[in-house]
């Protein structure tokens, strides 16, 4: 800041403008964070006070959190989601990178046609395919199990497409040198291609983890018990129960669910931003 300058009208105008900009930013912050802060705040209040419509209480405490953890399966839901999302993420990064590798570095018949087929799947919404998929999973005996929520998402056309773009940006000389050295495809894939595209892999990892974490319709159809139910559907379950006019505890459960994702997001933002900017159209 240029505080040392004489206070001319010019700097006054500049300062007024700066104040205006901060006011706008704070207003927008309030809009974006409003519902979240309201939820977080009420999670600290006794439900009796919330039900009166009060925005202040003399009994601010973590009681709702203790109640949510001890009387509901919220931690089990979190664990289920963690297992499902982690498995989905690991397999998607592995299988998408392998298929992307094939499309870039392997030469085979119908390569172009197969790739078009992959691209085509991006047009087919999973939501419109739940009926046959439900029968498939049922006849495989996978209903109400982690496998039902992981196996259909072991790979993704989007991930393949994204990593294909990343592999195509590797310098041609690298592959040529590897061929001269006599590296096998497996060695080149593992020791050069994967490390070279680390940022894209991280982006895909974050993206697939979050997509899996946020799944709602499919787990709702395929899980019937708390032992496998992921957290999104778990929250619905808690809300649906009669006892759950208990706003304080609902809000506390929501907070318990959202805080880990926000932490992952803020920590991973560096990668996410780089990846998204690379991925999006300029």
């Amino acid at each position: 800041m240029e505080m040392s300058q004489p206070a001319t009208t010019g700097t006054n105008v500049a300062n007024a403008k700066k104040v205006g900009q901060y006011v706008l930013l704070l207003f927008l912050t309030f809009l974006v964070l409003g519902p979240f802060l309201l939820g977080l705040w009420t999670s600290l209040m006794p439900t009796a006070d919330i039900s009166k419509g009060a925005l202040w209480s003399s009994h601010i405490s973590l009681d709702n959190y203790v109640a949510a953890i001890t009387t509901t399966p919220i931690l089990r839901y979190l664990l289920n989601s963690l297992v499902i999302s982690t498995l989905t993420m690991l397999f998607q990064v592995l299988l998408c990178s392998m298929s992307a590798y094939a499309f870039v570095f392997l030469k085979f018949k119908y390569r172009k046609q197969l790739f078009m087929l992959f691209l085509m799947t991006m047009m087919l919404p999973f939501e419109a395919e739940v009926i046959p998929n439900f029968s498939t999973v049922r006849s495989l005996g996978l209903l109400n199990h982690y496998a039902a929520m992981v196996i259909p998402f072991l790979t993704a056309a989007f991930g393949t497409f994204m990593l294909r773009q990343a592999f195509m940006q590797m310098p041609v000389e690298l592959k040529e040198a590897a061929d001269v050295e006599g590296l096998s495809h497996w060695q080149f894939y593992w020791h050069l291609a994967l490390p070279y595209t680390k940022v894209s892999l991280m982006t895909l990892a974050a993206y697939s983890f979050l997509s899996s974490w946020n799944q709602y319709l499919w787990p709702m159809l395929t899980t019937f018990s708390d032992s496998f139910r992921p957290v999104q559907d778990g929250l619905r379950q808690l809300q649906g129960q009669e006892s759950f006019n208990n706003w304080g505890m609902i809000q506390a459960s929501a907070a318990i669910v959202v805080i880990p994702t926000l932490i992952i997001l803020f920590v991973g933002q560096h990668y996410f931003k780089a990846g998204l900017n690379e991925g999006a159209v300029k």
Binding site: L25, L28, T29, V32, L33, P35, F36, L38, G39, T42, L210, W213, N214, Y216, V231, Q232, D233, L235, R236, Q239, W247, I250, Q251, S253, A254, V257, V258, T261, L262, I264, L265, F266, Q269
Partner: peptide, 24 residues
């Protein structure tokens, strides 16, 4: 700080968002 705040709803899943807004 503001940029981080503005991107934050990306980390909010559908059932959490529903709870916040059902309350509102």
């Amino acid at each position: 700080f503001f940029r981080t705040i503005f991107s934050s709803t990306m980390g909010i899943s559908v059932s959490v968002a529903a709870i916040f807004w059902l309350f509102a």
